[in-house]
């Protein structure tokens, strides 16, 4: 188990290094000089040059890359070109919206999908299964941001149960949670539809395995065999999807934040794009990629915990 975890950790480190290099190089080839962009067209060349020195833009590429990475390792993400504020601080504030939103949605989606998937697999081919499958078929076809607009239309504008957008801050936790509820539902339902389908098909595959027949020959009922032997084995492929979903949710959160005017990473990154604040774009993208890679790492560990064969094999 330890050597397996170490190997995964090594892969994690290499992936992060390569990803950071890719991001840095992509941003490097971006046309336009941030310094002249910040100062406007009419800026005097010596002012621009001074700013370039201040921002470290005149250093060789590899030095800037190392400085960027070294800074990030110490929690220093650089200084925003436009806001002249530390990127780390801006990002941290926004993360407090985006991360809880993604986790909230992940929890909701799991809570809905697991029972729905297991229920459908257990009643395969019967009315309950067909109903759940129909609902998930619709669920995966719905764009989450449009679903979010419908939720706003119904629950905020018509019924007035929730506000249509905005975020009160975590000083009032209940109000904050309430403000995140509609966005989380909008994010969670389409993902839950996918997850439920994976859960169902994975469970149905497992129910065809020989060891389920063995369990039935021991005297377990269909239901007992499903719960005791089916679900745990079916969970193994579902975990992979769950890991992938986190990155979709994080990306989805960026879009959903636009619908609900939430001050999260999404808002930050779109502002940064319009203002060509590349250091912010670079850092936020790196952060997102870091989140995805670490979640994949955790998924791998969860995988090994769920499957003893993996623990031993490597």
């Amino acid at each position: 188990m330890l050597s397996y975890a170490l190997k995964r950790l090594a892969i994690l480190a290499v992936s992060l290094a390569v990803a950071s290099l890719v991001i840095f190089l992509v941003v490097e080839v971006a046309p336009g000089d941030p310094a002249s962009y910040m100062l406007g067209i009419n800026a005097r060349p010596d002012t621009v040059a001074a700013l370039r020195t201040e921002l470290g833009l005149d250093l060789p590429k590899w030095e800037r890359y190392l400085a960027w990475i070294g800074g990030m390792l110490q929690g220093d993400f650089g200084t925003s070109y436009t806001y002249r504020a530390p990127v780390a601080q801006m990002v941290t504030e926004r993360l407090w919206v985006s991360l809880p939103l993604a986790l909230y949605a992940l929890t909701l989606s799991t809570l809905i999908a697991f029972p729905a998937g297991i229920y459908a697999a257990a009643r395969r081919g019967r009315a309950g299964d067909i109903g759940v499958m129909g609902a998930t078929q619709l669920g995966i076809a719905v764009p989450n941001f449009w679903f979010a607009m419908l939720l706003v239309l119904l629950f905020a504008l018509k019924l007035r149960w929730f506000s249509a957008g905005g975020f009160p801050g975590w000083e009032t936790p209940l109000a904050a949670l309430k403000a995140l509820t509609l966005p989380a539902v909008a994010l969670a339902l389409p993902q839950a539809a996918i997850l439920a389908r994976v859960m169902r098909s994975s469970l149905i595959d497992i129910l065809h395995e020989d060891f389920i027949r063995t369990a039935r020959a021991k005297g377990l009922s269909r239901r007992q065999a499903l719960w005791r032997h089916g679900v745990r084995n079916a969970l193994i492929p579902v975990l992979t999807i769950l890991g992938l979903q986190f990155s979709f949710l994080l990306a989805g959160a960026i879009i959903i934040e636009q619908v609900f005017f939430l001050p999260g990473l999404g808002r930050l990154i779109f502002q940064a794009i319009t203002q060509r604040d590349l250091i912010v774009v670079e850092s936020v993208v790196m952060l997102l990629v870091f989140a995805v890679i670490s979640v994949n790492f955790l998924t791998d560990l969860a995988y090994a915990a769920a499957d003893p064969r993996l623990r031993a094999a490597r």
Partner: peptide, 19 residues
């Protein structure tokens, strides 16, 4: 492949658009 998977399509789009 794993590396590309770490960049959700939205993130790729953001990077490309930024440039």
């Amino acid at each position: 492949n794993d590396l590309i998977f770490a960049f959700p399509s939205l993130v790729i789009a953001i990077l490309i658009t930024a440039i």
